[in-house]
């Protein structure tokens, strides 16, 4: 019977895997952990300390789960990193530019000072219809 610590470890290590693989990995890992723990107990370690040492040596179960799932542990890999960075720099000035233009247009339409337009929500609600350009 697995201890609670090992159970929690196993659950974390099989997270994200397809169901059939989960059972397989769980059974395989259980035996590996148990055997390693027993080897340490045979060498004189206390069972809880041995178990903890084995699991610590196995490392972060989330990393193990990612390795089992062949999931890359990064979002943007080397192949697209430069493209992404160029795009980001481009957007960093395009988006504010568009925002400023958008605000300027609405300012011209409502004919109010820029500050009040951005600052007070009521400026949008209470803009008198007569200020809309006619024709």
């Amino acid at each position: 019977m697995n201890t609670e610590l090992t159970e929690r470890y196993l659950r974390a290590a099989i997270a994200g895997l397809p169901a059939a693989t989960q059972d397989d990995v769980r059974t395989e890992l259980t035996a590996l952990i148990m055997d390693a723990t027993e080897a340490r107990i045979d060498q004189g370690e206390e069972p809880p300390a041995a178990e903890r040492a084995v699991l610590t040596e196995l490392g972060d179960p989330a990393i193990l789960a990612a390795e089992y799932a062949d999931r890359p542990l990064h979002l943007i890999g080397p192949r697209y990193f430069l493209v992404w960075r160029r795009l980001l720099k481009l957007l960093l000035w395009i988006v504010p530019a568009v925002a400023v233009v958008g605000v300027a247009i609405s300012q011209a339409l409502v004919d109010a000072p820029l500050g009040t337009l951005i600052g007070s929500p009521s400026a949008w609600a209470s803009a008198p219809p007569s200020t809309w350009p006619s024709g």
Partner: peptide, 12 residues
């Protein structure tokens, strides 16, 4: 090699 490298390697 470490256990956490070897075991997934065997699966792969």
């Amino acid at each position: 090699t470490d256990a956490n490298t070897l075991y997934p390697l065997l699966r792969r």
